[in-house]
């Protein structure tokens, strides 16, 4: 897939949104891949024991999966030069049905010098905004 040229992109352009479905199995898979084996992400009894409503997703899982909205748009996952976020609310993942995080993105800035586009991502789980100030900078052609 061809990387978009800077000239073909405008501030305000919206990226194709994506719904990320998360089940307990998703979190176990991420725990293994990331080596973050904190029990609050897969052990319901443990999570509730420390006062959480239920198992919660790794913040880094949400961050890592949300940026696929950007990398799929740009067509090359190696074009991300900067990516940052705050973890504002936990994504609670019940045994039954799991959770859905809806991720959308909008181009907020273009830098003709460096061919960089800044995309602001929004990630919502129900009414909750789960990432705050999620900004990815990508190098376009």
């Amino acid at each position: 897939m061809a990387v978009p040229a800077l000239a073909s992109v405008a501030v305000g352009d919206e990226l194709p949104p994506k719904t990320i479905h998360i089940e307990r199995a998703t979190l176990v898979q991420y725990a293994g891949a990331s080596l973050d084996r904190n029990r609050i992400h897969w052990d319901e009894r443990f999570a509730k024991g420390v006062g959480l409503p239920d198992v919660i997703a790794h913040g880094m899982f949400t961050m890592g999966s949300a940026v696929t909205v950007v990398t799929e748009w740009v067509g090359d996952a190696g074009r991300v030069t900067s990516y940052s976020t705050r973890f504002t609310k936990p994504v609670v993942v019940p045994y039954d049905g799991g959770a859905d995080v809806v991720v959308s993105g909008v181009v907020t800035r273009l830098d003709p010098e460096s061919h960089a586009a800044t995309v602001e991502l929004t990630a919502r789980c129900g009414e909750d905004k789960v990432l705050g100030r999620a900004l990815a900078v990508v190098r376009l052609d």
């Binding site: 991420y30 891949a33 890592g64 696929t68 090359d76 996952a77 190696g78």
Partner: peptide, 22 residues
């Protein structure tokens, strides 16, 4: 393993020829 876990399907993660082409 990490790419699969975060749902990143870009071939540059898994296909050396695609990565080199990029």
């Amino acid at each position: 393993e990490f790419a699969e876990a975060v749902g990143s399907t870009d071939p540059v993660h898994v296909d050396r020829a695609a990565a080199r082409a990029a």
